[in-house]
Design a protein around this nucleic acid. Sequence first.
RNA 1: UGGGAGGUCGUUCAACGGUAGGACACCACGCUCUGGACGUGGUUAUCGGGGUUCGAAUCCCUGCCUCCCAGCCA
Length: 573
Amino acid sequence: MDSEAGAAAPAASSDFIREMVAEDLRAGKHGGRVHTRFPPEPNGYLHIGHAKAICLNFGVAADFSGLCNLRFDDTNPAREDIEYVESIEADVRWLGFDWERRMFYASDYFELIYGYAEQLIRDGKAYVDSLTADEIREYRGTLTEPGRNSPYRERAVEESLDLLRRMRNGEFPDGAHVLRAKIDMASPNMNMRDPTLYRIRHAAHHRTGDAWRIYPTYDYAHPISDALEGITHSICTLEFEDHRPLYDWCVDNLRVAASEFKSKPQQIEFARLNLSFTIMSKRKLLALVEQKLVTGWDDPRMPTIAGLRRRGYTPEAIRDFCARIGVAKKENVIDMALLEHTVREDLNKRAPRAMAVLRPVTVVIENYPEDRVEEVEAVNNPEDASAGTRKLPFSRTLFIEREDFMETPPKKFFRLAPGTEVRLRYAYILKCERVIKDASGTITELRCTYDPDSLNGPTATRRVKGTIHWVSAAHAADAELRLYDRLFQSADPGEGGQDPLTDLNPDSLDRVTGAKLELALAAAAPGSRFQFERQGYFCVDPDSRQGKPVFNRTVTLKDSWAKITARGAQTTP
RNA sequence: UGGGAGGUCGUUCAACGGUAGGACACCACGCUCUGGACGUGGUUAUCGGGGUUCGAAUCCCUGCCUCCCAGCCA
């Protein structure tokens, strides 16, 4: 879709992780190698928060001439699906990253992971527990009280081994037994109180089918997967900080026996991305989709990569955003305005301009000949001379933006009003003579005159303050425009334990059906992006049909007039 | 009140014992046939209290606040 060739080299930004990696290299750690991985669970679509992790993992690898794997953390068959692995692949690729041939699944290692479990039992470092889930919880103690050993903790090695094999054979129902690491039930770190390594799940796995009845937990499978792939720096989010001792426990207790381990990976944690006015919880995003509160994972209002793509965001803008937000250990909430700024900046340079009238009102130019049509020349992109120019038909009957006319204009309203003049972009100066309304008082038509000597060009010496966009009525295409606003009403939708789904913005989608576009736009391919002058950036939606184009508004242009009027509304009682 | 991790402009990232800086946001002004873009200028910060030091955002002590952990989720 978007070529990566010539992508601007990111400003050599550094952060505490890159500093750690550089230090490791200096110290000769990991034999001078840098190898990271992006490890999503295929249980949902990727979102902008994942983009931060993707840019970090692939970026660190690239910065140090290392490699980054794509690995699916597919240890929980109940929630995972092939649809998600496919969408994840597509999204990472679209963002501009390449894992070459290194796409793996934790499930690739199930046999090895299982073997290590038997090894742990033989070493007296794991045991099969036959307590119920409730009992295990009771025995675990609380944050302030130590837990107690399970009565099965000292079970004979042979008995645990036999039980684990029979678990694997499917001889027991879900929940009957679990394999636990034998660490320390009195540890102040809850994760070290004999964590579960394997659980019974009679569920079909999207890759291994029904080959397995037991599945390893994340805490157990993840460090092993990292070590097997030769990962040197295992970057994850803050909530796993407490898991690091367990991560190290798994690696350290298996290293000697596991000849397949290619590295002693180290886990490094950073703060996940939070964005104002949206949510990053995959569970909640799934709920939005399942409850049909949005049209799907790629609804342009969603913070998913698929949603942003459909909305019109570019991979370059998202990567730039990720570079600008930085990487640290402090919890953060990034202002949505920054994301919007990065698309505007990117699209301003690249998007061809076009004339589109969102909510048209008819203008009849009384002193312009009935059947005359002339062509005026318009610049395709003032930021890019190589984009050239195009011809626009001009005639007696036009559409202009209803918003660009006011019967009783306030101060500093530089647009059209009775008796005032405005420039029609790339064409003539227009003067409003009369307003025509229907019985209900709605304006149906503006009767105007134009100044024949004011055509855009070297001969045009007169200047007026305002310039508005327009489209010739006889040469316009109809279109549906989808104008999006934030999906949630509050800056922090989950705040105070509230369900974010009760905080949806009822006006997050405004479908405008009678928009009038310059003709060429009707034929634009889905995914094409334009700047509709004075309105914003728009992108052709895949819902477009022959003769029925649909555009998504990616983001509005910055609008200082709107700012002035909003301010006025606030200060006027 | 167990353990772990954090507190620097409104937001975010930086400053690694030596002038607290950038970006976004905001405010002014300029420029403009997009009230866009662009240009110029500006407001605003080291959680509190002690200490060490010629010098502390940075080191030490102490207090306060926030986040994470009691899944057979990741």
